[in-house]
Design a protein around this nucleic acid. Sequence first.
DNA 1: AATCCGGGGTG
DNA 2: CACCCAGGATT
Length: 355
Amino acid sequence: MEISTVLFNWYDYNKRDLPWRQTRDPYKIWLSEIIFQQTRINQGLEYYQKFVENFPSVHDLANADIDSVLKLWQGLGYYSRAGNLHAAAKDIAATYKGTFPSTYNQLIKLPGIGPYTAAAISSLAFNLVHPVMDGNVLRVVSRWFAIDDPVNSSKGKKKIEQILSELIDTNEPGKFNQAIMEFGALFCKPQKPACHDCVFSKICMAFQQNRVVNFPVKLRNLKPKTRYFNYLVILNSIDNQTVVYLQKRNGKDIWKGLYDFPVIETAGHPDMDMLMKGQEWDRMAGKMNMNVSSVSKIYRHQLTHQKIFTRFIEITSPDKFQPENIPAIPVDIDDLQSYPIPRLIDKYLHDRGML
DNA sequence: AATCCGGGGTG
DNA sequence: CACCCAGGATT
């Protein structure tokens, strides 16, 4: 029996009932594909539902305000996905008048859509024959065929792409793509794969050679950098209203588009006396009539490639004032919940009872 | 080809 | 705690 036949039998019996599998609306399929880039189903499911609810069509998304899109995306990570999603929605609304682009070459031109997502949308929504290569597929194929080249190298990817072009079912390419990804997610898992009752054990070279644990071969990744943030939580109380100063993060650093506090980044965490003698402190806070009312514990925030140690320095000022050298905006603490913020800031604000 | 961009899961 | 997961954009 052909691999795709065995795969389809397995899929028909084992597939999960997931919302975007009940539609061929390319908009909803696109939405799901962007949300589930680097994201496990359990983590992204409620985000998918929120997006479909809040933005039922590509026009609703295109007309939305970027901050409200980011707010819905908050907590999901890789925030450039939200910006690209929004930009692509505007493209589609303008260039395609809302008729969703339907070919691989049109799709891959859109921001946030690369080879994987273009293949996924064109096959799932439009039944075009483009094999997907996500992490699941790379793992499954590298085991079936005992691919010794790293799957995150271009040589390894080319080999797997070649194999997939022969395996894919040309009548039902969308089903084939969904099925092989689902098989990777549920059976051919990274750790403890279910080889004992796998329908492919006879054709799986890795299993036959008792080397399943050796695949996929990967180039190893870098160690995370350590960074130290000193956040300035500048609080003003005016007429029973408390405002705190937020700044929107721009540039190439993490959390682009999200809001946090004015920050002094240091090589380590100097004691407060040292910090307050430094240039940055003087530039940002030197002109303020203020006092440091408290310094938080150290929060440790782990990202894939960065380990961030953070302390929150609360500064209260009797004056109504606008920080001069900081592009920060005053936000009533009752309005904080409408700003998209990183997990770390969210955690702190909850600890302080401000959110 | 190498590096950066989050957050959560697993053992 | 250490380690795993892995698409797209940028350099």
